[in-house]
Design a binder for these strands. Structure first.
Lengths: 181, 181
DNA sequence: CTCTAAGCGGAGTAGCTACTCCGAATATAT
DNA sequence: ATATATTCGGAGTAGCTACTCCGCTTAGAG
């Protein structure tokens, strides 16, 4: 692969993340413009709009997966779990694509996105069970409902006009439900 | 207004609710087809697609507002509050437009939708404060964050493939956070 | 029953957007 | 420096969809 080609691929991916983060319905031409390349170049690298969206999704999921994986080594399991949770939600309020990414992580998507999503979910599951073992999270909370809460909080935070202090108070209520009585 | 015109208006509204509930990006022609009228008829009643969507939104919000208002007379304030909450979330998992309606209820929208949204929020606020007075919900939970939780849970439940039992366990965790310690 | 204003249907228009195609430009191996 | 395989750019194509226009139909008053 030629060096300029790889450069362009990276520029396109970055531009796509930015553009689709602001407006999921944005056109491919907007991406090309922001990336500073022609439309033809975008379509050579990502033959279909769906494939481009999928690539963006994969990047996001891999990023989340890596962060979760790092946190598995954090000594305080409770801090690791709640910290990751808050971070995901905070990011979702900025870049709205994240919450959709979390949803898509479970549903059918392309191969790369699916495997990145599975990795992220596995790492989050590990954070959860570690937090439960150290009694920071109640033991009867199973993964599916906790993950549903993560999705819900993220999508809720995406709603325009949710102020950060409100978001944090919302999370406090939520965390109180997750902690042991 | 002629009788057949009103009939058609109702048929179109019902069809639009159905169609947009399944796929928010559906075309106006799909609505016309399901309603059994011509496209021209749809556009005479709702001159713009946005206005049609807004009409659907208004109907939904009014329905929720009415339900909440009824429940204000329920003797058990806790049951009323949590029952309403669960009902909204359950409905959101079927008709995906509901969760978007809740989001839009706050943001700028057309006049009728905005006022229906305000009414619904007011009624929900009443349910909340009554539940707090009877000690079914912790007193330090303010309206904005509780409403954010309602939106979040609804949008989370909209995610494809969230099984009802998981949804209910998720709500149990959430309610535990809302109850007094 | 008659008349007419209100309403209907759907072919047509305008504009947008995903995707193609190919001549021009350029990286890199020799 | 030269050759050539690779990549680039962006005008052009096809198809979709919101919205218009107007001849035809029909409700319902008198």
């Amino acid at each position: 692969m030629r060096a300029d080609a790889r450069d362009n691929r990276d520029k396109i991916l970055a531009a796509a993340e930015e553009v689709f983060g602001r407006a999921p319905g944005a056109s491919t031409e907007d991406v090309a413009k922001l990336a500073g390349v022609g439309i033809g170049t975008v379509f050579r690298h990502f033959p279909t709009k769906v494939e481009l969206l999928e690539a963006v999704l994969t990047v996001r999921l891999e990023r989340l997966r890596d962060r979760a994986t790092e946190l598995v080594d954090e000594p305080d399991a409770g801090t690791a779990f709640f910290g990751f949770f808050s971070q995901v939600v905070a990011e979702a309020s900025t870049k709205l694509a994240i919450s959709e990414a979390l949803v898509a992580a479970g549903a059918a998507a392309g191969e790369s996105a699916r495997s990145a999503g599975a990795g992220m979910r596995a790492a989050f599951g590990k954070l959860l069970s570690r937090a439960q073992q150290s009694n920071a999270v109640r033991a009867d909370a199973d993964f599916p409902e906790v993950y549903a809460l993560l999705i819900g909080a993220s999508r809720g935070a995406t709603a325009a006009g949710l102020e950060p202090p409100v978001r944090d108070k919302m999370l406090d209520l939520l965390y109180d439900g997750l902690r042991p009585r």
